[in-house]
């Protein structure tokens, strides 16, 4: 690790100003991913702007929505009473991620910005277009058991590793950011991007922008929601496939539904076609199976990860079944 400067920011505006002065500076919050990346020489910033002192930790329940500060810790959000009651999907997804120790450190904003766990991205002796543009993709033709089945490109088949983001994508969240040009908001489903020819960019945030909060609108999914995470061990493992489901049921009729998947794409993968299909239908095994087939229609395997297509289908059915029987 090379020498770097670290300064504490006192306001979000000063944080942004401080970052803007440097060509190679980064914000640091929990540091659970950034420090790993620095230790492995994947990234080597000259300066870190520590934003932990900023007043961005609150969870506020406003009329018809909740606003979660970007510095709220993952554990804090997962264990918040009102979040658990009104947005249990978010709480379940957070609790499924990482380990207790990491969740205690990790912030909401940092969780959104964590980089892929593709091994070729982390090993600086290997090719990776995301780390070094135009160096090639090691995972294509290599070890790709963990990799994408949706929206991948010839230059990158990595997946976004977050569980929390899958729930936020399902729950129509909005991201609030502040940058040198002022404040703006971004729909959560537009926040992360597909790799295309520029896999080095994970999301649409400008380099000098700071995430300040995330808002989730109130919904009727609290009773019938579920986050199903399929992984190689019961804790501290990234999702092979995960499914976030929110159902608004009236008797057995699906009034409204939200469906998103994790571990399958460069971004949280919202299943809008399956949602459309399910809306207005009655809960049944056949309906769920049809929705799952529809959702997985475009899935494409890369060899080692072909199993994700069967697994994804079955996981969608399982998650819908569990959510509908709550």
């Amino acid at each position: 690790m090379k020498n770097f400067q670290i300064i504490k920011a006192l306001t979000s505006a000063s944080a942004v100003t401080n970052l803007s002065k440097e060509t190679d500076a980064k914000f640091i919050a929990g540091g659970t991913n950034l420090v790993d990346l620095m230790k492995k020489n994947v990234t080597a910033p000259d300066k870190l702007v520590d934003i932990n002192t900023l007043d961005l930790k609150k969870i506020e329940f406003l009329s018809k929505k909740v606003s979660i500060g970007a510095l709220a810790k993952n554990t804090q959000v997962a264990e918040d009473k009102v979040i658990k009651e009104k947005f249990p999907l978010l709480s379940l997804a957070l609790a499924a991620g990482a380990s207790q120790q990491i969740r205690n450190m990790a912030s909401v904003g940092g969780n959104m910005l964590q980089r892929t766990r593709c091994p070729y991205f982390y090993n600086t002796d290997m090719p990776c277009n995301k780390r070094v543009p135009k160096s090639g993709c090691g995972a294509i033709g290599g070890s790709n058991r963990m990799h994408a089945v949706f929206g991948a490109s010839e230059s990158c088949i990595a997946v976004h590793p977050s569980d929390m983001c899958v729930a936020l994508a399902a729950l129509d969240a909005t991201v609030f950011v502040e940058g040198p040009k002022g404040k703006r908001k971004i729909e959560f489903t537009d926040f992360h991007r597909l790799p295309g020819n520029t896999p080095e960019k994970d999301n649409v945030l400008d380099a000098k922008e700071l995430i300040t909060s995330v808002e989730i609108p109130e919904n009727n999914f609290a009773k019938n929601s579920h986050y199903l995470k399929i992984r190689d061990r019961s804790s501290y493992a990234f999702a092979l496939v995960s499914v976030a489901v929110g159902l608004d049921l009236k008797n057995n009729l699906i009034n409204d539904v939200r469906l998103a998947m994790g571990g399958v794409a460069h971004k949280p993968w919202r299943l809008t076609e399956a949602e459309k299909f399910l809306k207005g239908k009655t809960v049944s095994e056949t309906t769920f199976k049809q929705a799952a087939d529809l959702a997985m229609k475009e899935a494409k395997g890369y060899g080692e990860n072909n199993f994700k297509i069967t697994l994804g289908t079955n996981a969608i059915i399982e998650a819908l079944t569990i959510a509908s029987s709550k």
């Binding site: 982390y122 290997m126 070890s143 190689d232 019961s234 501290y236």
Partner: peptide, 24 residues
């Protein structure tokens, strides 16, 4: 796991090389 094209391990860390946890 070795990527034999390079002769290098690819899961040489505790996040990717799995050993059981209590919950297993």
């Amino acid at each position: 796991e070795i990527d034999h094209r390079f002769g290098r391990p690819i899961n040489n860390n505790f996040a990717d090389y799995h050993v059981p946890v209590n919950a297993d």
